[in-house]
Simulated scan of single mutants.
Amino acid sequence: MVHPRDRRARLLETGMALASELSLPVLLQRIVELAAEITGAGYGALGVIGPGGDLVDFLTTGITDAERAAIGPLPRGRGLLGALIEDARPLRLDELSRDPRSAGFPANHPPMHSFLGAPVRARGHVFGNLYLTEKSDGPDFTVEDEEALITLATQAGIAIANARLHEEVRLRERWLQAVRDTTAAIIAGSEADDVLRRVARSARDLANADIATVVTPDSGDVMRISIAEGAHAEKLEGLPVSMTGSVSADVIRSGRPVVLDDPLTDRRAQKAVLDLGLIGPTLVVPLTVRGAPYGTLAVLNLSGGRRFDAEDVRLVESFAVQASLGLDYSRRPRAHRQGTP
């Protein structure tokens, strides 16, 4: 058991350490690990809440990568996880299964009994929740554990707000640079495929995605993945995509983006892509040429990866505009591109 004086000292050290970390992904993982360490929890998680109230990311400690992959897609925030989302107050339980809000665990999930949770607020809003289970040095979490977690959650909220401000500035700078580079390539007369590859690479990078693809018309009723960047790129590039019944077909027809949390449960997902395995959350936006539907730009994460949110949609759509400009420009006669009468 941690001595109260040692715990207070550790929390002071933790506050300073968190405040100095400006990389949001690194910070979030560190928060989970510190929460488990300070409370003596065997397992810990930080669920990040998206605009719709669902969990869009779920960082863990105490579970191996293999165990996490075996468990499957990220939780959406139902059951007890959802209880903390709906009622953002600390929650301490001796036995998870006895709470009527408990929804049980998916297959391959390690058994868990004792539970401690607390909200993390940043900029006046609930950013997410800390979830801890399996007290290691006693049967149950204590009042002192709860107080320590509340203190850590407060420190974490301040650190997250600082890191997000820093990340937003850096993301804006990187986005502007990517737009400048793509615009310069378009004006220089780069081939359409070169522009599209540059756009896909930038979208993948700035959306922190594992994969980016561009789907364009091929012949007849078939489109193809003409550009692929990231994981499985060499297997994805060139795969056919149906003009009917596919996600890309629906996006082209509607002109609106589609976000899939789990493509395995969506009948429109392409079997050839799913057969590669481990494909997870997917975001697909339309490409247009002079206002007419042409193809799609997509970013994907591997199974168990972060879900895409409204900010990701806006970001990827901005790159789709760049791709559309490149396609339009490449189709103009060279004399017109150079401004020759």
Rank of each mutant, 00 (worst) to 15 (best):
H3V: 07
R5N: 07
R8P: 14
A9V: 15
R10I: 04
L11S: 06
T14A: 11
G15N: 06
G15H: 04
P25G: 06
P25Y: 11
V26W: 02
R30G: 10
L34S: 05
A35Q: 01
G40L: 13
G40R: 13
G42R: 13
G44W: 07
A45F: 04
G50Q: 02
G52T: 13
G53D: 02
D57N: 13
D57H: 08
T61Y: 10
G62I: 13
T64I: 09
A66E: 14
R68E: 03
G72M: 09
P73Y: 08
L74R: 01
L74D: 01
L74V: 02
R76D: 15
R78K: 14
R78V: 15
G79S: 10
A83V: 02
A83I: 04
I85R: 14
R89I: 04
P90T: 04
S97D: 02
D99P: 05
P106W: 09
A107Q: 05
P110L: 01
F115D: 09
F115S: 07
L116F: 09
L116T: 00
G117A: 12
G117V: 12
G124R: 01
G128N: 06
L130V: 13
E134T: 09
K135G: 01
D137W: 14
P139E: 03
T142N: 01
E144C: 11
D145T: 02
E146F: 00
T151D: 03
L152P: 12
A156E: 09
I158N: 10
A159L: 03
A159G: 10
A163K: 14
R164K: 14
L165S: 14
H166K: 09
E167F: 06
E167I: 00
V169S: 14
R172D: 01
R174D: 00
L176R: 12
Q177P: 05
V179M: 01
V179T: 11
V179D: 12
R180S: 05
D181F: 08
T182F: 02
R198T: 06
A200L: 07
A203R: 05
A207S: 09
I211F: 08
A212V: 10
V215F: 00
T216P: 06
V222C: 12
G230S: 07
A231P: 08
A231R: 11
H232F: 12
E234A: 13
E234R: 14
L236Y: 01
E237T: 08
M243P: 04
G245V: 12
A249Q: 15
V251P: 04
R253N: 09
V258H: 15
V259W: 08
L260M: 04
D261F: 15
D262V: 12
D262F: 02
T265L: 10
R267Q: 11
R268H: 04
A269H: 02
K271Y: 03
G277K: 12
I279K: 15
V284Q: 11
V285E: 15
T288V: 13
T288I: 12
V289S: 02
G291Q: 04
P293M: 09
P293G: 07
P293T: 11
Y294H: 03
G295I: 04
T296M: 12
A298G: 02
V299G: 03
N301S: 06
S303A: 13
G304N: 08
R307A: 11
D309T: 15
E311D: 10
D312G: 01
L315C: 06
S318D: 05
V321Y: 15
A323F: 08
S324L: 05
L327T: 03
R331D: 11
R332N: 01
R334V: 15
H336D: 09
R337I: 05
P341A: 05
